[in-house]
Design a protein around this nucleic acid. Structure first.
Lengths: 209, 209
DNA sequence: TTAAATTAATCAATCGCTTGATTAATTTTG
DNA sequence: CAAAATTAATCAAGCGATTGATTAATTTAA
């Protein structure tokens, strides 16, 4: 059954994504992943070729749709810079908070300072998301909507860095924020709206003329 | 000779710190570390007991002095809130940019969402640094120096997150900023002053009444 | 029946760590 | 001081366990 095959592969990727986030790529073994997914070890290689194949499959599954959404916001001519900024933050924060396992996994890989094919590949894709944001800011400054003295580049570090802090180090951020950032209800009812509002206020304070 | 013994242990920790940052705790093998340090494998266990012992030794070496410096700033009664903020940022940014290997290593460990003794231990120590910053902000708000509507907790995420973004993902941040953030000259002459100035401007914009 | 899916068994390689032995340095003793 | 005794430092070799991956046999499904 074609349907079930896909579902089973998807199930394996769900589990692998979580285990990679919990223990890191090297810390997670293929036996552990297959065990928790309830499938035979050899199925990982049968489906995905190798451990790295599993990792890349997780990556492919998450990245494509996400990127087109962000790009469409950046290219939408009907919005001014402030509106684009709002839309971008809404979409971005929704996605990364919900798919936190994936983003934890992803960020840990690129934090390895020794380069390899994998990190290069990930870097390229991440840079596309960054580019959309940078273009929105640059356009806003050029149009005079934003303060021209703003440091566009470090602003990138602030928005993505703030996000990473909350998502990637949940033990820390949960203590700081006062609730469990890994809880789905908390994420949707408390964290997301608060984070969005904060981000917009912060950017407004810094970018306003 | 007592002196040389200490130097050799220190040398091993220097190498281990770098290798851990490059490949992660699990990705780095004890053979690799001892090989690059030019010592026999058994020396790691002889000196530090275990692989984890090496990690903790790196940790101890970096954390102690750093923490007392930050604490002394927080407790200094002669400065107002804005001055404390400035001082804190200066000290903090200097340290984390210079010791980037250590902070990459540290952050990767606590980004593992599955808890263990090690992550708990690290979390506690990190929270002390965070607490100093939080107290400065809280005091400033209480005194009326800072905007009382500010989200103190998410501000923590912003300052430490921005730092992490620059330091922990050097391949990304180097592309964004336009120069190599791992180069020592770049760090001292370009990155540090720029980062400090930006951070202060950003906080001023957000915290000002 | 035949191709696809799944399994248990097994592979070589590498992991962290320990061992027993050896050398170098230090302390104790006569 | 010098010989003896003790401690510290270093090494090659190898331990059992685990890693990612592969094989060959078996089951399932079309």
């Amino acid at each position: 059954m074609e349907k079930e095959k896909i579902d089973k592969k998807d199930h394996i990727l769900d589990v692998a994504e979580r285990v990679f986030a919990e223990l890191g790529y090297d810390g997670a073994s293929t036996r552990m992943i297959s065990g928790e997914a309830g499938v035979n070890m050899a199925m990982l290689n049968y489906y995905f070729g190798s451990k790295e194949g599993v990792f890349l499959a997780i990556f492919d599954r998450r990245i494509t749709t996400f990127q087109t959404v962000l790009l469409s916001i950046g290219n939408d001519e009907s919005m001014n810079s402030w509106e684009k900024l709002d839309k971008y933050l809404d979409s971005y924060i929704d996605k990364v908070v919900t798919n936190n396992c994936f983003h934890i996994m992803l960020n840990r890989e690129i934090s390895k300072s020794k380069k390899n094919e994998l990190t290069d590949q990930i870097t390229d894709i991440i840079m596309k998301n960054v580019k959309v944001f940078q273009d929105i800011i640059a356009e806003g400054i050029k149009k005079g909507d934003f303060n021209k003295d703003a440091d566009q580049q470090l602003l990138v570090a602030t928005i993505f860095g703030t996000k990473n802090y909350i998502v990637n180090t949940p033990h820390i951020s949960s203590k700081v924020l006062g609730y469990d950032v890994l809880d789905a209800d908390v994420q949707n009812n408390l964290l997301k709206p608060r984070f969005k509002a904060y981000m917009k206020t912060l950017l407004k304070a810094y970018l306003q003329n």
